[in-house]
Amino acid sequence: MSKVAISVRDIKKSFALSHSGAASLKTALLWWKKKRIEKLEVLRGVSFEVNHGECVALVGRNGAGKSTLLSLLSNIYKPTSGSIEIDGKIAPLLELGAGFHPDLTGLENILFNGMILGLTRKEVMERTPAIVDFAELHNHIDSPVRTYSSGMQARLGFAIAVHVDADILIVDEVLAVGDYAFEKKCYDYIAEFRAKGGTILFVSHNPDSVRKVADRCIWLAAGEVKMDGTVEAVLTAYQAAGDER
């Protein structure tokens, strides 16, 4: 394994902007001559590297491109230009329990979600008891997920994600779920994950959690890296910029 876990080089991403709302054949036929495509440039050339074992926080205002960047790393978008290299198995946690089907039981959803995250059927089966333990859902695991509270769904989603044995975790503001005890469990897990040499890239709007887990911080502003450095330095500058407004 090389030293660098995530390498992002000059990533640009733009989206077609629509004012008409939902697409329809009618609008396509009416407007086919005036192809008024407006481009929204979300990322304008972002470059950085994350080393193995590092925990990097992404901060920035809404619309700065943080989530787009994480989605690009999770292979959900293709970049307009630039390159991304990832060394190791990646587990994206963009939304806990994305892909849960409300009519299926907790167990069935574990199997399905585990496979979406890249495990084989056999691997999921082996890990199911540990996942149920972690999520603390023993009494509910045979009930359909639609009967779960949102906190229970999030717990199950997190439990599955942390059991896929990834080298790199990509986390988008999902840790602020569940009660205090579960939150503590998540942070304990993250500490353990880091102790084993795992790499984390996460987005957070909470300075306390950034200070707690991150050892480096990247500030994204208007689709560009505005600052990249130690947590204290970046957070101080970021918060100062926020206070000015």
């Binding site: 989605s71 959900i76 939304e95 892909g99 979406i116």
Partner: peptide
Amino acid sequence: LPVVKKVYF
């Protein structure tokens, strides 16, 4: 689409 936007497969 909500899943497609959040998970790759």
